[in-house]
Amino acid sequence: MDPAEVLMEEAKARQKPILEAAARGDSEIQRFFSGTTALVTGGTGFLGKLLIEKLIRSCDVKKIYVISRAKKGMSSKDRISALLKDCVFDTLREANPDFGNKIEPVEGDVAELQLGLSVQSWDTIAKKVDVIFHMAATTRFDETLRQATLINVRGTREILALAKQCKNLRSFVYVSTAYCQATRDRIKSEVLEHIYPSPIYPDALIGMAESMGDERLVSITK
C-alpha cells in the first residue's frame, strides 16, 4: 500500500471512535444544537467549513444560514455551491448526500452597514435564528486600517445589532482573531484570556475609518 494511503487509513482508524460517539447524538452539546437554526459568518473560510460540517454531521441542526458576498465573478449562491464540493464534506456526503439542503446562502458583506443584508434577509434571520457564529474577519497582517476596522470592528458591531433583534437567540459565539492583543508593549509578557481595554474607543475608530482620507489614516496606523 502507498505510504500516503497507509497514513489515511491510520487517520480513519483514529477517527472511528469519535464518529461512533457523534452518531449516538446523546452529548449535552449535541442535544443543545439539535433542531436549531444557525447563522454563520465566515462560513467559506478554513474554520467556517469545519464548523458547518460538524454542525450538520454531529448536531443535526435544522438549517444553517451562511452569509457570503459575491467574489471573483461568483455570486453568493455559487460560492456556497462550490463550498459543498470541498473534500471536508466527504464523510458527511457519504452518510447524507442531501446535506446541502440544510445550508441557505445569504448574500451579504460584513464590511458593509447592516452586514450588506437586504431588509428581507435581516428580518428572516431575526425571526428564525437560534444560534449565531461570527467567524468572518480579515487576518492579513498588512491589511489597511480602514478595511481592518470596517470588517473586524464595525462588522462585529453590526452582527451584534442583528443578534439583539433575534427573537429566539440562545447562543452567540464570537471567534476572535488570534493576535488582537499582540501589541508592542506586551512583548515578553503573558497575554491572558480576558477582555483587555481598547486603546481607542471602538466607535471613534469606526468613525475615522468611515470619514478620514486615506493619507491621514495611513499616517496614524501605527
Rank of each mutant, 00 (worst) to 15 (best):
A4H: 11
M8R: 15
E10W: 13
A11G: 02
A13D: 11
E20C: 07
E20P: 06
A23Q: 13
I29L: 15
Q30G: 13
F32E: 07
G35R: 07
L39S: 09
V40T: 06
G42A: 08
G42T: 03
G48W: 00
E53R: 12
L55W: 09
L55Y: 09
D60P: 05
V66I: 12
S68K: 04
A70L: 04
K72M: 09
S76N: 08
D78Q: 15
L84H: 07
L84T: 07
V88N: 10
T91Q: 11
L92H: 01
E94I: 12
A95I: 04
N96S: 11
K102G: 09
P105R: 01
V106L: 02
E107W: 00
G108I: 00
L113G: 09
S121L: 00
W122T: 05
W122K: 03
D123R: 10
K127T: 06
K128S: 15
M135A: 01
A136M: 02
T139V: 13
D142H: 01
T144R: 05
N152R: 06
G155I: 01
G155T: 02
R157G: 07
A163H: 05
V173L: 14
Y174M: 03
V175L: 11
T177H: 07
E193W: 01
H194K: 13
Y201E: 15
L205I: 06
E210A: 10
M212N: 07
V218M: 11
S219T: 03
